[in-house]
Amino acid sequence: MSGALTVPRRWRRSSLFGGPWQRRTLLVVFAAYCVWSVRDLPIDYTRVWRGFGRAADMLARMWPPDFGRWQILGKGMLESVQMAIAASVAGALLCVPLALCAARNLVPAPIYLTARALIVVGRTFHEVIVAILFVKLFGFGAVAGMLTLAFSSAVFLAKMIAEDIENVRPGPVEAIRATGARFGQVVVFAIVPQVVVRALGVFIYRIDANLRHSTVIGIVGAGGIGQTLAASFTRYDYDFSAAILLCIAALVALGEWFSDWVRRRLR
C-alpha cells in the first residue's frame, strides 16, 4: 500500500499564450480596447431611437405586400435565376484549367504560383466590388452580373478543386503514368475519378450561392431582381419591396433545398 503512495503530480495543458503573466497582460489589453472602442464610438442615441420609429412606419407601409406588378417582379426573378445558372456553368468551364494549374502536384512551380496568385487576387474582392467594376466596364444590366458571378465562381471552384487535386492518392497517378499515358489521359483516368464527386458537390453549392449573390449584385446595377429591389426602395414603393423580398427568400430557400438534395444523393 505504501509503495503506491506517491506525491500526485500536477499537470496543466500548456497555454496558447505562454505563461500566466502574458495571459494576464493580454486580458487587460483586450478589456482596455473594449472600453475605449465603445467610448470612442459616436453613438447618437436619439438617431437610433428615431430609426426604430421609421422602421415601424416602413413595416406598416410594407403591409400588405404588393404583388400587382408581378410582371416586373417575374422578369427580375427570371433574370436572376438565368444569371446564376449561366454564371455557374461558365464558372465551371473556366475553373477546370485554373484548378489544374493551381495544383502543386501537377504543374511546374511557375505555373502553379501564377494560378495561385490569380486565385488569391480574385478572391480578395467581394462579388459586389467585382460587380461595381464590371458595371463600369460593360454597362448596367444582366451581362455585367453574369460576368461577375462567372468570374467569382471560377475562382472559388478552382481553389476548392485544386486543393482536392493536391490531396489525390499519388499511387494511381503513378500507375497510369507508368502505362505510357499522356498528361491529359492521366488527368482523365487518375485525377478526375478521385476528385469528381466532391467537385460536383462544390459546384452544386456554388449554384446555390450564385442564386443568393445574384439577388445582391443587382443593387449596384448588375441586373436581376436586386436591381428591381433597389429601384423600389428609392421610390419608396415599400409594399412592392416587401413582395420582392418575399420572393427572394422563397428562391434562396428553394436553392438551398435543391443543393442539399443533390449533394445528399451524390454521397
Binding site: R169, G171, P172, E174, A175, I176, R177, A178, T179, G180, F189, A190, P193, Q194
Partner: peptide, 15 residues
C-alpha cells in the same frame, strides 16, 4: 513505358 508493365505494392488501382 508502353512496353514496360508495372505492378505495385499498394495495387494503385483507381478506386
Amino acid at each position: 513505358r508502353r512496353r514496360i508493365g508495372m505492378i505495385f505494392q499498394e495495387f494503385n488501382l483507381v478506386e
